[in-house]
């Protein structure tokens, strides 16, 4: 790494996520087709688009759950490569929240949250527990510390999953349709937690169709279709004057 590069790493203007010409194929389908996107520090970017448009795949490439076929991704100035150790280091800085929560069912809520700090960062148990309790208060369910995931509602599970990701004190959080598997009455409790996070200045890359959240928290909205970015715009502009025909059609479908 040259001196200039290392200087850039600490430059506030360096995007925390820098995606350039990303390609990902599954067999013959071109899931992500030449996507470039920057996410700035403290920015909330919401990605929308019809199913199969490649938005989840894009997100999963960012912490390399999918290995891209082409293009580059930089996280806070560091390029993602095939180096296993480097990937693990970067993953620790990138929190991820899944559609299906993916909590560890054999661990309590507290143990789910302390898993990362204890195993990856080598923290002492007492220190990790203190942090976990703090995070459970933050997501509004301090009384569920000793509950197992199957004793929690979907909304509570997702909030524990958010706390689990936050426990690694990530630089950026990825949300992959965090409310899609939830019953309607539980969506709000998860979105409220996400709004709080956004308010605290957390950098977030969110795949979601929750337009209320997008309007309230997103600085930019990315509309994707067929593996490509169709337009990047502000929430206001998107709802009042979408530029592209495809965007209009999609919005009319999900907003009716």
């Amino acid at each position: 790494m040259s001196v200039i590069d290392s200087l850039q790493t600490h430059n506030a203007e360096t995007p925390i996520v820098k995606i350039r010409d990303l390609h990902k194929r599954f067999g013959r389908t071109h899931a992500v087709h030449g996507v470039s996107l920057d996410v700035q520090r403290g920015e909330v970017v919401v990605i929308i688009g019809p199913s199969g448009s490649g938005k989840s795949t894009l997100l999963r490439c960012v912490n390399r759950l999918e290995v891209p076929n082409g293009g580059t991704i930089h996280i806070d100035g560091q390029e993602l490569t095939n180096n296993e150790q480097q990937i693990n280091r970067i993953r620790a800085d990138v929190g991820m929240v899944f559609q299906q929560f993916n909590l560890f069912p054999h661990k309590t809520a507290l143990e789910n949250i302390t898993m990362g700090p204890i195993v990856v960062k080598g923290w002492e148990q007492t220190r990790a527990h203190a942090l976990a309790h703090e995070l459970l208060v933050k997501v509004g369910i301090p009384e569920k510390a000793d509950s197992y995931p199957d004793q929690l509602s979907g909304g509570q599970q997702q909030r524990v999953a958010i706390a689990r990701a936050l426990a690694m004190q990530p630089k950026v959080m990825l949300f992959d349709e965090p409310t899609s598997a939830l019953d309607p009455e539980m969506i709000k409790e998860v979105l409220d937690v996400m709004l709080d996070l956004a308010g605290e200045g957390m950098t977030m890359l969110v795949v979601s169709h929750e337009m209320g959240f997008a309007r309230a928290a997103a600085r930019r909205i990315v509309f994707m279709d067929e593996g490509q970015i169709v337009e990047i715009t502000t929430p206001e502009a998107l709802f009042t004057a979408p530029k592209h025909e495809r965007t209009k059609r999609f919005l009319s479908q999900i907003l009716q």
Binding site: N63, R91, N102, F104, V119, M168
Partner: peptide, 18 residues
């Protein structure tokens, strides 16, 4: 074991072995 379990663990930064 669902695939999501391994993904969630790897996303936290755990190695394959961990």
């Amino acid at each position: 074991i669902p695939k999501g379990q391994m993904e969630a663990a790897r996303a936290l930064g755990l190695t394959q072995g961990q």
